[in-house]
Simulated scan of single mutants.
Amino acid sequence: MSNSSDSSTRGTGHASARVLDTYGRGVRTALQDNATAYGFSISITAAYGLASGSRGPASAAETIGFALGAGTAFLVITLLFLSKHERLSEGEQVLTLSGAFDFLSVVVAVAVGYGLSRIPGSPAWPLTGLGTVVSYLLVGGLDVVLARALSRHTSLGRSDSP
């Protein structure tokens, strides 16, 4: 009898090890896929807090200016690196151009956020978050469409190979 209980315990141990291995792979994938965005989010949030802390509460115009400055940085860096005439595949070109068009997503999301933040009372909080994310994602989808269309009609960053 001890053999059957030993084998069932051993099977449970192997199953637990498989679950832990799978979980570990999942955590590593989440870290890989999100580390850069998470680091950026921490950095930009801290920068906003530092600017607000040293100058007092930010006005709506200052917050919009901060967001547009951050978005402009992405646009400028993207254009700077695209102008180096690196050879990019069509997929890489679309992704890079989409990053440049992301500025449009930021502008629309900040404008929607500003408008919704003006709603009186506590509904402004969830509605501002909801509207900002929805508008960013919907315009973000257009970014990809615009980037794909532009990549077909420009040699910006395109490989010269046939």
Rank of each mutant, 00 (worst) to 15 (best):
A70I: 14
F81D: 12
E86N: 13
G99Q: 07
L127P: 07
S122A: 15
I44S: 13
G113L: 04
D102G: 15
A58Y: 02
S98C: 10
T96W: 02
S41R: 02
G99H: 05
G53L: 04
I119E: 04
I64Q: 08
L95Y: 01
L127S: 06
A46Q: 06
E90M: 09
V106G: 09
R118E: 11
R87I: 00
T63G: 10
Q93W: 05
V108R: 04
T72K: 00
G99N: 12
G91C: 00
R87F: 01
S54P: 00
T45N: 03
S98K: 09
L95K: 06
P123A: 11
H85C: 01
A47V: 13
L75H: 09
F81H: 14
L82Y: 07
G91V: 12
I64M: 09
F40R: 08
S41G: 15
T72C: 11
V112N: 07
V107N: 05
L127H: 04
S122R: 09
T36W: 10
T78E: 05
F40I: 14
S83C: 01
A73Y: 11
P57V: 09
P123V: 06
A73Q: 04
G113Q: 07
R55A: 14
G49M: 07
T78C: 10
V76P: 03
L50T: 11
T78N: 13
S52T: 12
F74L: 15
A67G: 12
W125H: 08
S52A: 15
T72W: 02
G49F: 12
I42C: 11
P120R: 06
A109F: 05
Q93C: 03
G121Y: 05
L116V: 05
T63W: 03
L95F: 09
E90H: 14
F103Q: 06
V106H: 07
E92Y: 01
F74C: 10
L104R: 08
F103R: 05
Y38C: 08
A100W: 03
F101L: 02
E62Q: 15
S117T: 08
H85S: 14
A58F: 13
T72P: 03
L82K: 04
L97I: 04
E62V: 10
F40T: 11
L88F: 07
G49K: 08
I42M: 14
Y114R: 03
L80C: 04
T36C: 02
G56S: 13
G121E: 05
L104M: 14
H85W: 02
V108K: 06
V94A: 07
S52F: 01
A47N: 03
Q93I: 05
E62D: 11
W125G: 08
T72N: 03
G121S: 07
Q93R: 15
G91D: 13
I64D: 05
K84W: 02
S41Q: 11
G53H: 05
E92F: 07
V107Q: 06
S54W: 12
Y48D: 00
L79K: 03
I119H: 04
E62C: 01
S43P: 00
F40S: 10
L95H: 01
G91L: 12
Q93D: 06
Y38G: 05
G39I: 11
F81E: 15
L97F: 01
G113M: 06
A67I: 06
L95C: 02
S52K: 14
A51G: 00
S89M: 00
V110R: 03
V94M: 08
G69Q: 05
G121M: 10
